[in-house]
């Protein structure tokens, strides 16, 4: 429970495979949740490979980090970087010059309970892999978001991660399908959302379409959900709303509307979307 008496939620964002969008998802969901009035901290648990700070555009204001807090070299409040663009949004950066062995599971659990005192949403950006860094990122979490792109290696690793999360009794475990390319799905050259759901058999919390604005926003250090209305930004806003418990319908990203004669004719005449 945080200081205002609201039940806190610790949510780990994870994937197994690297490069599928954990950090992008963490930054965008954190911003979206804070903008809708929640008190949020984004925690970078990727010790030694700090990245959430640059994606969020807060790298110049990092002084202390997660390791300093768990080792008692600074107070929690000193290590939290406040995002000046959004009320109620903070970042707890990872250490860049230490290794993942610098923190233990026990320390991470303790850190999470400290953060619960202050925040309503604690979003933890997990490192790739299934080693100790992953376990430390997960240990203090109640629930999990698993990120997968509609590609074979990513789905396979997501399956492995889901098994580990289930054995650690995290619930709910929900899926984000990231970087879906509707035109490829339509052509039968990419797994669609239902294929991925069939295989992984967990609940879907959202689908993020492939969108160039994701790269641009990371270049600038401005998460899309700060202002943008690009397809990916809207998708992340919907996921944040669902996370907060709102019923948000799923728009059709996949080919379902595009099957049949009309779609066939369109393909015949080479019309691109």
């Amino acid at each position: 429970m945080d200081s205002s008496g609201v039940q806190s939620r610790v949510i780990v964002i994870t994937s197994g495979k690297g490069g599928v969008g954990k950090t992008t998802t963490t930054s965008n969901l954190s911003v979206a949740l804070a903008r809708s009035g929640h008190r949020v901290v984004a925690v970078d648990a990727d010790i030694g490979l700090r990245n959430l700070d640059v994606v969020m555009g807060l790298e110049n204001r990092v002084v202390y980090n997660l390791i300093d807090v768990v080792e008692g070299s600074c107070k929690l409040s000193q290590a939290l970087v406040r995002d000046k663009r959004v009320d109620n949004l903070f970042l707890l950066p990872a250490a860049q010059t230490r290794t993942k062995d610098a923190v233990s599971s026990g320390q991470m659990e303790e850190l999470c309970s400290m953060l619960r005192e202050e925040f309503e949403y604690i979003l933890i950006d997990s490192p790739a892999g299934i080693e100790s860094g992953f376990r430390n990122a997960v240990v203090g979490a109640d629930e999990a978001l698993v990120i997968s792109t509609p590609e074979v290696p990513s789905v396979r690793d997501a399956d492995r991660i889901i098994g580990l999360l289930e054995s650690m009794e995290k619930a709910p475990i929900r899926l984000v399908v990231n970087r879906l390319r509707t035109s490829m799905v339509r052509e039968g050259e990419m797994l669609d959302v239902n294929d991925v759901l069939d295989i992984l058999a967990i609940d879907l919390i959202g689908v993020v379409p492939e969108d160039d604005s994701v790269v641009k926003s990371a270049n600038r250090g401005e998460p899309l959900t700060l202002s943008d209305s690009s397809p990916a930004a809207l998708a992340f806003q919907r996921i944040a709303a669902r996370l907060a418990g709102d019923e948000v319908p799923f728009p059709k990203f996949d080919e379902e509307n595009e099957r049949g004669l009309l779609a066939g004719l369109r393909r015949l005449f080479g019309k691109k979307d």
């Binding site: 396979r156 492995r160 039968g188 990419m190 797994l191 669609d192 294929d195 295989i199 393909r267």
Partner: peptide, 28 residues
């Protein structure tokens, strides 16, 4: 080519799904 595209529904997606299902049986 365009006719093939019009009538075919066997893109790489179905291969991907089948391969995944098999590899996951082994993994699990």
């Amino acid at each position: 080519g365009f006719l093939k595209r019009f009538f075919s529904n066997g893109g790489s997606k179905s291969v991907a799904k089948e391969r995944l299902q098999i590899v996951l049986i082994h993994d699990r």
